[in-house]
C-alpha cells in the first residue's frame, strides 16, 4: 500500500532524477569545483562532531595538551563508563553524583517522547484527517491559527504554566512536560499529517463509502494503513522535538530530562569536558539514529509542499 502511494507523492522528483541519470558531459573544472566544495562541506559538518567524539575518547591529561589532539595517539572508554555508572574513580566527577543521573534522565526523555508520540498521533491524526477530508466552517481559520502558534515564544507562556503546575502539583514530574510539550508537538503533527492526507489519493475511500463503510470505519480500516509512512514521519518528528526540548524542562523540572541535565553538568566545577562529551555523544545518538533510519519518510514529510 505504502509503495503504491509513493509515486503520487513525489512525481516531479522521479522525472528530474530520471533525466539526470541519462547523464550529460561535465567539464573537468566543474568536477573539481564540486569535489572541492564537498570537501569544505564535509569539514564544516564533521569538524565539530569529530572534536566532540575525540574529546569523549581521551583522558583529561590528553585534553590538556595544546594544541588539541585532533588525531589522538590512544583512546579510552573510561569517560563513557563513568557517565554510565556514576563512578568517581579517576576523579572525573569530584564529589558530585551527576554521572549517576544520566541513565535515569535518558529513561525519562524516552518515556516522555514515547507518550507524546502515541498521544499526538491519535489527536493530530484525527484532526488532520477531519481538516483534510471533511473541512467544516472555520477549518481554514483553524489551520492558520495552527501556523501562528509557531511564533508564540515559549518564554511568553511559561509563567502561567509554572503557576498552574505548582497548584496541581505536577512540577518536576514527567506530566509537566507531557502536558506542556503539546504546545509545539501537536501543531507540528497536525500540519504534517494534514499535508500528508491532502496528498493521499481519495479513490479507495470513495470506493469504501460506496460499499457501505461508515466514515469512522473508512478512517480506521482504509486510511490508517495507507497513511503509515506519514504517521511514522510525524512520530519521529514529535519524538525529536520532545527529546531536544530544553527550556520548558529547565523551568518546570529539576533536570528531569537529558538537555537540562547536560546544562547542569556544565556548571559543576569538577565535571570535566571529557565526561560531558561522552554524555553529549549519548544524547545525540537516539535522535540522529532515528532520523537516519526513517530518513526518506521524515524528510519527505518535512519538505512536503516546498517548491510548489
Amino acid at each position: 500500500m505504502s509503495i503504491a502511494s509513493e509515486p503520487a507523492l513525489r512525481p516531479a522528483r522521479r522525472t528530474a532524477s530520471g533525466s539526470r541519470d541519462r547523464g550529460r558531459a561535465r567539464s573537468p573544472g566543474a568536477t573539481i569545483a564540486i569535489y572541492g566544495g564537498l570537501l569544505v562541506f564535509a569539514i564544516w559538518i564533521l569538524l565539530p562532531v569529530w572534536y566532540l567524539v575525540v574529546s569523549s575518547l581521551i583522558t583529561p591529561t590528553q585534553l590538556g595538551v595544546k594544541p588539541f589532539p585532533l588525531i589522538p595517539t590512544s583512546i579510552t572508554f573510561d569517560n563513557y563508563l563513568s557517565v554510565l555508572t556514576g563512578s568517581t574513580r579517576n576523579q572525573v566527577f569530584g564529589s558530585t553524583d551527576a554521572g549517576s543521573r544520566l541513565l535515569p534522565a535518558i529513561g525519562q526523555s524516552f518515556f516522555i517522547g514515547a507518550v507524546l508520540v502515541v498521544l499526538d498521533l491519535i489527536l493530530a491524526g484525527a484532526a488532520a484527517y477531519g481538516l483534510s477530508r471533511y473541512p467544516f466552517r472555520g477549518a481554514r481559520s483553524f489551520e492558520l491559527a495552527i501556523i501562528v502558534t509557531r511564533v508564540v515564544p515559549a518564554i511568553a507562556i511559561i509563567g502561567p504554566f509554572f503557576v498552574a503546575f505548582r497548584i496541581i502539583g505536577v512540577l518536576n514530574t514527567p506530566f509537566a512536560l507531557i502536558i506542556s510539550y503539546n504546545v509545539f508537538t501537536l501543531p507540528l503533527a497536525i500540519m504534517i499529517l494534514k499535508n500528508y492526507f491532502d496528498q493521499l489519493p481519495r479513490e479507495i475511500e470513495e470506493a469504501a463509502k460506496i460499499d457501505g463503510a461508515s466514515r469512522l470505519q473508512t478512517l480506521w480500516i482504509i486510511v490508517v494503513p495507507i497513511a503509515r509512512p506519514g504517521l511514522v514521519a510525524a512520530g519521529v518528528l514529535i519524538f525529536l522535538e520532545a527529546w531536544s526540548e530544553f527550556f520548558y524542562a529547565l523551568v518546570l523540572t529539576n533536570q528531569l530530562t537529558v538537555p537540562p541535565l547536560l546544562a547542569g553538568f556544565q556548571s559543576v566545577q569538577q565535571f570535566n569536558w571529557n565526561a560531558l562529551a561522552a554524555a553529549t555523544v549519548m544524547s545525540i545518538l537516539p535522535p540522529v539514529v532515528l532520523v537516519l533510519l526513517f530518513q526518506r519518510h521524515v524528510i519527505g514529510a518535512l519538505t512536503a509542499g516546498i517548491g510548489k
Binding site: F41, A42, I45, L46, P48, V49, Y51, L52, L240, W243, S244, E245, F246, V258, P259, L262, A263, Q266, L276, T280, S283, I284, P287, V288, L290, V291, L292, Q295, I299
Partner: peptide, 16 residues
C-alpha cells in the same frame, strides 16, 4: 551528513 546538525538538539549544539 546534512541531517546530523539538524537532528542534534539546540542545547547540545550550544554545549558542543
Amino acid at each position: 551528513l546534512l541531517i546530523i546538525p539538524w537532528a542534534t538538539p539546540w542545547l547540545v549544539i550550544g554545549i558542543l
